[in-house]
Design a protein around this nucleic acid. Sequence first.
DNA 1: CGGGGCCTTGAACATCATCAACCGTCGTGG
DNA 2: CCACGACGGTTGATGATGTTCAAGGCCCCG
Lengths: 250, 250
Amino acid sequence: MSDTPFPRLSPGVLADDGDALTFCSTCAFSQACLSQGMDKSSLQDLHMLVEHVGPLHAGEHVFRVGDPFEAIAAVRAGTVKTYVIDRDGREHVLGFHFPGEVIGLDAIDGDTYPCNAVALDTVMLCRFSFPKISVLATRLPGLQQHLFRLLSRSIGRAALLAGDFSADERMAAFLVGMSERLAARGFSPNRFALTMPRTDIANYLRLAPETVSRVLKRFQDDGLLQVDRRELELVDRARLETLAAPVLRH
Amino acid sequence: MSDTPFPRLSPGVLADDGDALTFCSTCAFSQACLSQGMDKSSLQDLHMLVEHVGPLHAGEHVFRVGDPFEAIAAVRAGTVKTYVIDRDGREHVLGFHFPGEVIGLDAIDGDTYPCNAVALDTVMLCRFSFPKISVLATRLPGLQQHLFRLLSRSIGRAALLAGDFSADERMAAFLVGMSERLAARGFSPNRFALTMPRTDIANYLRLAPETVSRVLKRFQDDGLLQVDRRELELVDRARLETLAAPVLRH
DNA sequence: CGGGGCCTTGAACATCATCAACCGTCGTGG
DNA sequence: CCACGACGGTTGATGATGTTCAAGGCCCCG
């Protein structure tokens, strides 16, 4: 494994094209809207209601269960973990959210957030008032469509890990999925850092932390990957994808 | 257990109030829109693009993986099962959909359906062209809001069963959840029929069919419920809810 | 150095899956 | 009308996968 640094902040792949977009060049949300067929003056409207938040530091919460719902947020940099505490006091990790991904969508139905969102490292956000973006969406069909798709995609994603899969399949799917999501944002697909502790990965995959340890070790012994503490390199991507295939359904 | 018949079709609790609504009195979708603040002329527009489908008989598909996505659908009567077949040929049940619930939401992001939907008994549907309803939603903020909430709710629901729970917790949550959803549509909350075979319940809960059998039997022996083939009566709802609490998070 | 997370490793255990057989019900056809 | 067969469901015995418990190691930071 080389000694190149592991990326933690957005590399700015969404850099502006030299015009007014400079004021939010790393905000993937508006970028996506553009590609949905929104013109630039519409994007101006969108940016009128954006609020840049951060930096938040590891352990600081973006929102908590029961906070009044007022906005969704796009992650610009860092990793956000969403989770709930059930009535027996057990934590359940719902997901990890990387740059370009949106949190708070599950709060739209209801007037408070149904889960907690916490920064796992240094996090930057774009906050979008939901009432305002809804109103805007009635004027901008492209924005409405983008929101619909965003919500729809989350349903699909939530259903993925819900299936009945082995520890190996889950782990492989987690790694390949993470790789794909990071790659879509311009990060290296085969070398990245696990920004979350093993306990969170385990909890998310519904495994014991010890199992995560053992599976990772076995994957390494089998030449599928190299892992050193939180640094990871996918070595045999093809075999990992084969393992992950039943889960990811590509 | 008495010999009253188990309801299978919508009892018409959403019956019209004597006016133009009669033409779709059992369509919960439009009813919900009304309560979202839509006026009746708007509802007329909505009904212009509704297509009533059915009856479909047990085993007939509403749509299949890869079918071009063109519409979402509200279940008016019967039970619809959604599922996928993974690359190893294993089936994964994603959910059961009762009257008043909407299917196809996970297809919005993409131009084909990502899952199969099949009738478990005699099913009636209201079909809504999604392109058309999207356009309408830009004119009717209440409709847009309803769609957002519908999508958001599905995200939350998908996350529920995804957690790390015991067979007992899963089973209790399934039964209580089903009871609540039926009750919300005017069905008896404590006496209802399991419209799906044990294998489907097991698959949905990520258990073996044998485990479902055993848990149900133990629940019956413990006085939690009475079960006779597909007919079910919740006897000790309080204890079932306690068991289900970690999953349902009420 | 020393302490505290976080992670790993090993051994015993539990839960649930698997395998195999059987049963009850229903539908069909003799 | 009854025999048969198929399907769905139940039950028991066995076993695998992953959890739990306990201990130790590594790294970072004081």
